[in-house]
């Protein structure tokens, strides 16, 4: 099975986030990037699948600072092919734009299965998985926490709120949004990563012009503001709902 895992780097919340002078984006001077946690699980799930039923794993990531280290780490874990997607990702690119760029690349790779993190904390225009599925015209299942391979299909375990789990057969090729791998992402020793740096190659691909259309435009970015007042609404469910609708109308959102 040919598994492709598109991943991205996101701001590391260990550093304090600041808004730049434009007031609509993060200040990149102090920004440190880290692999999106859910993408890390997607890589783990892909490697688990490979270990269980063979195949190969390709990890793809848009270029950013630290992307090589991240890709080599994936290689040390067992990824077979590493692709760095070059393009103008710095400025204003959103998941719509990224998904379009990835879709072009992914068509060439002819994957049986695409695993990606179900979400990232910097998703402003929805998560990547469904967009990819749409552009590639593949089925999508999100919030997956465990995948088993079968011939021509996979069984995905999807978690629902309230502790329900559904097992669903998905015909391949398909895109799955991974919430958690069957096992937590493994530790990979630094010596293995260093070995991968010597032996593994990163395949660089150029992205076509990015088209972010469909996503929102950020007009203002700011730290959460403390609210000055809170109103407690009491009554029956219907009364509360009616009151909330009134409040929305009063404030002009509805």
């Amino acid at each position: 099975m040919n598994i492709v895992v598109p991943v991205k780097l996101v701001p590391d919340l260990v550093e304090e986030l600041t808004v730049d002078a434009s007031g609509s984006a993060l200040d990149t001077a102090w920004l440190r990037l880290i692999i999106n946690e859910f993408d890390d699980h997607a890589i783990e799930q892909a490697i688990l699948l490979k270990e269980q039923s063979g195949g190969q794993v390709v990890v793809v990531s848009p270029n950013a600072e630290g992307v090589e280290d991240m890709l080599f780490t994936a290689s040390a874990k067992g990824a077979d092919q590493l692709i760095k997607l070059n393009g103008d990702f710095e400025d204003g690119v959103n998941n719509h734009g990224l998904a379009r760029a990835l879709a072009t690349l992914l068509r060439d790779l002819q994957p049986d299965l695409i695993l990606t993190g179900v979400q990232a904390h910097n998703d402003l225009d929805g998560s990547l998985g469904p967009l990819l599925a749409q552009y590639l015209e593949m089925p999508y299942v999100g919030y997956v926490s465990g995948v088993t391979a079968d011939s021509g299909k996979v069984v995905a375990r999807k978690e629902y709120p309230g502790g329900l789990i559904a097992e669903m057969e998905v015909t391949l090729p398909a895109v799955l949004g991974i919430q958690a791998a069957e096992q937590p992402p493994r530790y990979v020793a630094i010596s293995k990563v260093r070995q991968a740096m010597k032996t593994a190659a990163i395949d660089e691909q150029e992205a076509a012009t990015l088209d972010p259309s469909g996503g929102p435009t950020v007009s203002r970015m700011y730290q959460p503001e403390a609210t000055e007042q809170a109103t407690m609404i009491s009554g029956s469910e219907d009364e509360i709902a009616a009151r909330i609708i009134d409040i929305f109308k009063e404030s002009g959102v509805l």
């Binding site: 260990v14 550093e15 440190r32 880290i34 937590p184 493994r186 530790y187 990979v188 020793a189 630094i190 010596s191 293995k192």
Partner: peptide, 26 residues
């Protein structure tokens, strides 16, 4: 090398590798 470390130790090692301290702070 086999990655057989417990979750807490794994966090500490990952932090040491990334931030140079086991506390996972900048």
């Amino acid at each position: 090398i086999e990655g057989q470390v417990d979750a807490q130790l794994q966090d500490a090692l990952a932090n040491l590798g990334r931030y140079g301290n086991s506390f996972g702070q900048s």
